[in-house]
Amino acid sequence: MSFVVATIVLASFGAALVIGGLLFFLRPHWLLDWLKGMAVFGLIFLGLYSLVIAINIGGYRSIHGLQTVASIATQRQGDEIWRVTLQPSGESPVTETLRGDQWQIDAQIIRFSGPLRWLGIAPGYRLERLAGRYTSLEQERSSPRSVVGLSERIWPDLWALDRQFNLPFVEGVYSNATFMPMRDGAMFDVRLSVSGLVAVPVNEEARKAVQLWDQ
């Protein structure tokens, strides 16, 4: 099931449950029975939870096997100053200036279980931030840092709520690519699966940077 269809289904289901639950209040004598009253609140809660999920998955992209989610190119602008171009898959490129010797891209991954999995909703990801880092620990602590946000915050944030409260049927996973070295003219692919992110050099400059970095 695509995220667009899943959003429509969950939003419709959630809205129907909330409206249906609120309609019970039009007949107060139904609430005299405590069990029925609890069922009403249960319906409303389930409906609201469905709406929260529907709102959130609209901000994620589905994961299908190992896929390339972005490419990154680095160009030197000065001593430990780099022009970094991020090209997310299917989106407009983002160009930022980062300081340091290495770059890192972070992503949030969300997985579903139980009835949400039965609906065929695939795991989703959202690129979270792009950052620079210094090789020297002393510089990392004292020099200016570069951190660029890549996504707008969603409220209520289902991923953050799951990390804090361990929500049912949802699993928020934090994943980040290993820091990769900066080099003039280097290009990398950022690939993702349900297990996490990995950065792969795709041209000679990137491969040389990784070889020198590993020595």
Rank of each mutant, 00 (worst) to 15 (best):
M1R: 08
S2P: 15
S2Y: 04
V4C: 03
A6K: 09
I8Q: 07
V9H: 01
A11W: 08
F13I: 11
F13G: 04
G14I: 06
G14C: 06
L17R: 02
G21Y: 09
L22F: 07
F25G: 04
L26N: 11
L26W: 06
W30R: 14
W34C: 02
L35A: 11
L35C: 01
M38E: 00
M38R: 02
A39D: 00
V40T: 13
F41Y: 14
F41A: 13
I44V: 14
I44N: 06
G47M: 03
Y49G: 06
V52M: 14
V52P: 00
A54H: 09
I55N: 10
N56L: 01
I57M: 07
I57L: 15
G58D: 01
Y60S: 09
S62N: 02
S62K: 01
H64C: 02
G65T: 10
G65H: 12
L66T: 06
Q67G: 01
T68W: 00
S71L: 01
S71P: 10
Q77C: 02
W82A: 07
W82N: 05
R83A: 05
V84L: 12
T85N: 09
Q87C: 02
P88S: 07
S89Q: 13
E91K: 08
S92G: 12
P93M: 09
P93S: 13
T95I: 06
E96P: 02
E96V: 14
E96W: 01
E96N: 08
R99M: 12
G100I: 03
D101H: 08
D106P: 00
A107E: 10
Q108L: 11
Q108F: 10
I109E: 11
I109K: 09
F112W: 12
F112Y: 15
P115M: 05
L116P: 00
R117N: 05
W118A: 15
L119F: 08
G120I: 00
Y125L: 01
R126P: 00
L127R: 07
R129F: 03
A131T: 05
L137T: 05
E138T: 14
Q139H: 09
Q139K: 14
E140V: 01
R141A: 13
R141V: 08
P144M: 02
V148K: 11
L150D: 03
R153S: 11
W155L: 05
W155K: 01
P156V: 04
W159I: 01
L161Y: 01
D162R: 06
Q164W: 10
F165M: 14
N166K: 13
N166R: 15
N166P: 00
P168M: 03
V173Y: 10
V173M: 07
Y174F: 03
S175Q: 11
N176K: 11
D184T: 12
G185C: 04
G185A: 02
A186F: 13
D189W: 12
V190K: 04
S193R: 04
S195E: 14
G196C: 03
L197Y: 13
A199C: 08
V200A: 04
V202I: 15
E205V: 07
A206N: 11
K208Q: 15
A209N: 06
A209D: 06
Q211A: 15
Q211E: 15
Q211M: 13
L212E: 13
L212W: 02
W213H: 12
W213E: 12
